[in-house]
Nucleic acid binder design. Sequence first.
DNA 1: CGCGCGCTTGATTTGCGTCAATATGCGTGG
DNA 2: CCACGCATATTGACGCAAATCAAGCGCGCG
Lengths: 256, 256
Amino acid sequence: MVVGRDRQRRNKWKTRPVRQDIHTSGIPVLCVSCEARHRGICGALEPVQLVELARASTKHVLEEGAELIGDAEPIDTYANILSGVVKLTKSLPDGRQQIVGLQFAPDFLGRPFSEESAIGVEAATPVSLCSFPRRTIQRLKDTPGLERRLLMQTLRELDEARGWMMTVGRKTAAEKVASFLLLIARNIDPTLGEEVAPAAAFDLPLTRADIGDFLGLTIETVSRQLTRLGRDGLISVKGRRVELLDMGRLADLAGA
Amino acid sequence: MVVGRDRQRRNKWKTRPVRQDIHTSGIPVLCVSCEARHRGICGALEPVQLVELARASTKHVLEEGAELIGDAEPIDTYANILSGVVKLTKSLPDGRQQIVGLQFAPDFLGRPFSEESAIGVEAATPVSLCSFPRRTIQRLKDTPGLERRLLMQTLRELDEARGWMMTVGRKTAAEKVASFLLLIARNIDPTLGEEVAPAAAFDLPLTRADIGDFLGLTIETVSRQLTRLGRDGLISVKGRRVELLDMGRLADLAGA
DNA sequence: CGCGCGCTTGATTTGCGTCAATATGCGTGG
DNA sequence: CCACGCATATTGACGCAAATCAAGCGCGCG
């Protein structure tokens, strides 16, 4: 019962310095359309601080599979996700792997108070980041709202992790896959919220292998459950493209 | 494949007001021997603030099975655990249950920024608490270190939750049980730390049902794995009493 | 005492992992 | 253009680990 196989990784960073214009009522251009300024941690910053942070920031584009941080490597930079999906992984010495979290824009990446991370961080899709050195954040640390934002994101991640513990520990394969589809749907289209919208369509940002590693299943089981959900008319699957046809039954299957 | 059964709960609070002496260099007597003052959140407080907090505090003793907070009930008080073990649970509409976290002294209990909790909180053993109203903490909120302590505990809980996601999602029953035993051992006797000590003995603070709910297993499987670990000489079990005879092989089984 | 409860142990079933063969899609080079 | 390789996905047959079903034991308690 040893699951999870080795997978190859690539590592390419495309770096590009950030433009320095700082008008539009004092807000850096980099930031004006950035989600992190509203829902992310930057929302806690005053325009002046935003300028300071933006000055130290660089925008990166990573391609799928790029590792941001390996297990137990030192971290010296933090980042906000601008787009794409990042997976947090843990693995056993024998290669079994578990995805312990998925991060979407405008989540904050990095580990306060700890020089090294116990988890791997990898781009699941092409990802663009706004990253800045640890020191810059530390200088801003006294901003009352900043640490609070961080705490709030951390609490949210904790809730999510616990939710997935339930899913992974107690749900059946079909329920797991349904739950996963809803997770993705809600993150692709936040307007879906918790309520039941009629339908949704999107491309899965994860391979079957990743989905398996997230749900504690094998790729074969994930595949089978997807085709079964399709046969039963809850969804339609063609490769990565998925349509949720019956959100009601799907949410029901996923279990409240 | 529907696991988890209904269980009965009791609900008895034994309340007792806190003594008001505030000498010993300004530290409330209630606090002088309290672990939370060192490793917990109270460590961030100045003696003056400690007095303020202690004045608003009451000590409670709960018996095993008492619910602190039900699913989705409003919370108006926070607490530090003085002794005992508290389990955090989630459950599905059909009764399946998952324990999503265990808290030991001197952990902080409560949910900042949220009026209600999505998880159940229940005493797994007799528990004693030092609890205080939400407002008191909010008044102290500006203390620079307090929120940081909270963030640090939350980050630690997040790490733990993710560690258990790996355990629940990818490990075999035997590995799960071994991991669990090590968790308990390390919390009963913190000197064990991460290193391999020769042996340890303790009473399990959880029933087999709870262990199953924590690991995503049935009680029967937990029981079988325990007797097997016993037969193989890694541990010795008699009811709740457990001795870890071979920490090395145990840690090895649990998987780094 | 007898009942309930927690736990163990055994027999049986089954969901999902494993192994293996076969698509399907995509980039590369002939 | 098709041929080829490679990675990802699907599908089927089979086996096993853990769930389910079912006794039975020890113990505390009304």
